Computed example of a mutant assay.
Amino acid sequence: MSRQQQVRQRAGTIEKNAIRLDIDKAELVVEALNIDLAAMYVLYHQLRKHHWNGSGPQYRELHLFWGEAAEEAEYSADEIAERIQALGGVPVSGPAMLEHHSPIPFEGEDVYDARTSMKNDLEAYGDIIESVSSHIDLSESVGDHATGEILRERLVKLEEFAHEMDHFLAHDSLTLWE
């Protein structure tokens, strides 16, 4: 059995695509999408951390919410990665590259109270919403309307979860117990 490895495509490169988007335009869109992909994975890991470590009087509701939000973030990441590949690019995938490309920082390993966790999540969602919105405009400005549509669908979900988080953070919820 041969142990020879052959690189099919180098990370950071763009190849011709079946979509027929010029390589220069595809490169701009892929670069933007890799930012959104990285952000989705950083968000996914943060949401999973909160899902695993949540506690308090609203534990069950928060546990389910964070689990659902994490699943949606993972689904969004997959959609974005598949679009990157369709455009002739290579989706970022390693932890170092995800952290490097993400516009949102990873919250870290510490465990926070539910309110702080939710505030951190809402802040991350706001940053991602801004990024995705600008990338819709970018993709459509170069004639890639399908990517714009994919990002619009992801944007709707991001805004829905951000809206729900805002409700969790209402003054009468997630009360700290001392």
Rank of each mutant, 00 (worst) to 15 (best):
H135I: 05
R20Q: 14
D144C: 04
L138Q: 09
L43K: 03
M97N: 09
M97D: 15
Q6F: 11
G54N: 15
R10S: 11
I136V: 15
D166E: 13
A73R: 04
R8G: 00
R8Q: 02
Q58I: 12
V7A: 04
K49T: 00
W66V: 06
I104V: 15
P91Q: 05
Q6Y: 10
I19Y: 14
A69N: 02
D110C: 04
L62W: 00
A86W: 06
H167P: 00
G67T: 01
M118H: 01
E123G: 11
L64V: 11
E61S: 14
H135F: 08
E160I: 09
V111H: 00
E123Y: 14
E107K: 04
D172H: 09
I129W: 07
Y44N: 09
H171Y: 12
E159G: 01
Q85D: 03
H100V: 02
E27Y: 03
S102W: 08
G54F: 07
D144Y: 01
G88M: 10
Y112W: 07
L151E: 04
E72A: 13
K157N: 10
E140G: 06
Q4I: 14
Q58R: 15
E15K: 06
Q58V: 08
L37Q: 03
H45F: 14
S102R: 07
L151F: 11
E149T: 09
R83Y: 13
L155T: 05
A146S: 10
